[in-house]
């Protein structure tokens, strides 16, 4: 008798297969629709219903729009588009200029960010103001906007010079370097043979601690200096954790013997300041100086 599990399994397999086939079909469709000269051929061949021809032409048009958009996005990195704010009360009749930043890391596009501008000043139609955006707060969007897209102060009537192109370029640089630093941090973890960070919302109840207590040092306990260093006697201390802040401007390394290293990273991925302290609190100058350099080889330099 077929058990419920095996039936469920079968259904699951079928669903997977359907999904694969659908993806395949969609892929083939887009290839077919992207054929050169397809619109002309559609025009020339006789069809049974005129409506089908119109439908097909519409699909081809949509596909070619998509292709064009993607080519621009993939090659330029920063692209602009127009959207309409559906808010009936929006300024400037809801005309919105969108700027899209595509970030690619390691040959694939990892994330897309949007900055949406409106024109708050009816007198100066070229003055743009950030309306909405999806840029994380660890990216200095506001300073960038202040520099390249300044708005009129109340007193000064004339708007200040704005440079959207430079703004977009700088923003893309910030975003791309952030993603590269994130990637480098992941690679450091791999170099040190550590598991990746816990996925959010995973295993809150796995019996593990919900977090790392950062101020255990503040305890005024006199007799806290007992055992706990039992695994300290290993000859080669391992790196037990690698942690970075959200912007990956600061990396914290903890060794299994209680040594802690703090490394400041510049935006282009250079470790420019380092401080390594042993468990007793003395500075390890040789390790600190070894750490300086590109972020990529940090682990190798430290373990060398």
């Amino acid at each position: 008798m077929a058990t419920v599990e095996s039936l469920d399994d079968d259904i699951g397999h079928l669903r997977d297969r359907i999904a694969t086939l659908q993806a395949h079909r969609a892929n083939l469709t887009s290839i077919l629709l992207s054929q050169p000269h397809l619109p002309t051929r559609l025009e020339q061949r006789p069809v049974l219903h005129e409506r089908n021809r119109r439908n097909a032409a519409k699909l081809v048009q949509r596909q070619s729009n998509r292709n064009l958009e993607n080519v621009y996005r993939a090659c330029a990195g920063v692209t602009a588009y127009r959207v309409k704010d559906p808010d009936p009360c929006a300024v400037d009749n809801g005309n919105i200029l969108g700027v899209r930043v595509d970030v690619s890391v390691g040959g694939r596009f990892v994330e897309t960010y949007h900055v949406l501008f409106n024109r708050p000043n009816a007198a100066h139609k070229t003055t743009l103001k950030i309306h909405k955006h999806t840029v994380p707060p660890c990216i200095p969007l506001h300073p960038l906007a202040n520099k390249w897209l300044p708005l009129t102060r109340k007193s000064a009537e004339e708007p200040r010079e704005q440079d959207l192109v430079k703004f977009g370029r700088r923003l893309r640089k910030e975003l791309a370097s952030w993603h590269l630093r994130l990637e480098a941090l992941e690679k450091l973890r791999k170099d040190a043979q550590l598991p990746g960070p816990i996925a959010p919302r995973d295993g809150l109840h796995a019996g593990s601690e919900p977090g790392i207590v950062l101020n255990a040092f503040i305890s005024d306990d006199e007799d806290s200096q007992e055992e706990e260093g039992s695994d300290e006697q290993d000859d080669a201390p391992r790196i037990s954790s690698i942690d970075g802040d959200a912007a990956v401007r600061e990396i914290t390394l903890i060794w299994s013997n209680g040594r802690v290293g703090l490394f400041k990273v510049t935006k282009d991925g250079e470790v420019d300041k380092a401080a390594v302290r042993t468990k007793e609190g003395t500075r390890d100058a040789s390790l600190s100086s070894k750490a300086l350099g590109r972020i990529d080889g940090l682990i190798q330099r430290l373990e060398a």
Binding site: A26, N70, P86, D102, R108
Partner: peptide, 21 residues
């Protein structure tokens, strides 16, 4: 309504050429 810009709903991958119907 701007939440559509957060996810991949609106910003599909730049190399995803499938414009499904």
């Amino acid at each position: 309504g701007w939440s559509i810009f957060q996810d991949h709903n609106f910003s599909q991958n730049a190399l995803d050429f499938v414009a499904s119907q």
